[in-house]
Every structure is written in structure tokens, then in C-alpha cells.
Amino acid sequence: MDIILEGIRQAFILLFTFDREVLGVTWFSLKVSGTATLISLFLGMSVGTVVALTQFPGRRIVVSLINTGMGLPPVVVGLFVTIFLWRNGPFGFLEILYTPSAMIIAQAVIATPIVMGISLAAIQQLPRKLRLQILALGATRLQMVLVLIREAKLALLAAVMAGFGGVISEVGASIMVGGNIMGYTRVLTTATVMETSRGNFDIAIALSIILLLFAYLINLVLTYVQQRERPR
């Protein structure tokens, strides 16, 4: 128990003395996971919406693949991204293994199916009649899609939170493709793993608490946006 209290104390010391390394790592975690989430939003929401609104052969297979992708293990993503990005691998010419870009790619791969799956369900569950009604009012197809997205806002924001939560907390892919390089690709989760293996449990706990704190703050903001309207 002592060690947890000590960790909490450390967390506050590190935060309020503006420890440069910890702040840097925290800011970097948010930047990488935020960018990855943003990319996953564009890809996930657009594809999710298209799949939700169209009929095509093999659609169920596609949906089942997306749903499986929601549970993609980060280490598996990390391993494949690493192999693809190796200097002598197929995308070696990009020279981005062990860089923040590689981490963003890996995290985007993890978050995209999560956002996609939830968006798909969110859009598809809107009543079919709503679509017809919007079109009957003279909206273009694009306008209709925008209205539908607005209607599904609650669930789509949940998709954002799930996607962000999935990547800010993952460690397997980040450590493999980023390498946990000090001041360059070290994020809160990989730093926690390293401090644990160094036996610095108090600092590891402090980093975990900072991670939880920031994850909470971001979700708090998103929740406020989501719950702005009164419950129906």
C-alpha cells in the first residue's frame, strides 16, 4: 500500500514541479495518440458510414471483419508494422521505423476499426424512414449524410472516446515500432514499462496516474460535448 501512496505523491510532485521529462512524455503521448485518433476518425467514420448506408455483395463479411478489427491486439499490429517498416522491408525506403510517424501509423491501425465499427452501428441504427424523409425534403445525398452524422452524434463521440482510449493505453505496438527512445518516441505507457523493469515502482505508478488523469480529462471534455443536450 505504501508504494501506491508514494506513487501518488510522486505523480503530484512530477506534475506540479513541471518535471520537463515527464511533461515532455505526457505531451508527446497526447500528440501521437491524438493524431492517430484523428486519422482513424477520418478513415473510420467515412468507411463506416459508407458501409452502413450501402448494400453490396459480401457486406456481412466486411462488417464481420471490421468488428473483428475492433479487437485487434496491439502487439500483432506492432509486429506487422515493424516488419513492413524494416529498412530492408517493403516500406523500408520511408525510413520511419523507430520514429513518431511509425507510432502514429500503428496506433491509427489499431483505432481505425474501433471507430469504424462503432460508426457503422451508429449510422445503421438510425431509422430508415429518417433517410427517406431527409431526401424527401430535398436534401442532396451529401447533405443527408451530414444530417445522419449529426443524428448519430452521441454514438460517434463514443467512437472517438473508444478509439482514443484504445491507443493512449496501448503499449505493445508503441514499444515495438517506436523503440521507447528517450525524448523522441517515449510515451507514458512505454515509460511505465521501462520504469517497472528498472524497479522504480514509485515512478511507474506516478506515470500511470498521470496517464489516467489525462485520459480522464480528455474524456471529460468529450463527454461534455456529447452530453450538451438534455437527455431525451
Binding site: 478513415l43 459508407v50 442532396t140 445525398r141 451529401l142 449524410v145
Partner: peptide
């Protein structure tokens, strides 16, 4: 339309990256 929107969004994403 959907396809074009998708392309536009993907391009935006790549620009961010």
C-alpha cells in the same frame, strides 16, 4: 459523393501525418 468525401478525408489525414 461518398467516395469523394472519403478520398478528401483520407487526404486530409495523410496531410496531418
Amino acid at each position: 459523393n461518398m467516395f469523394l468525401t472519403g478520398i478528401a478525408l483520407a487526404t486530409a489525414a495523410l496531410l496531418v501525418a
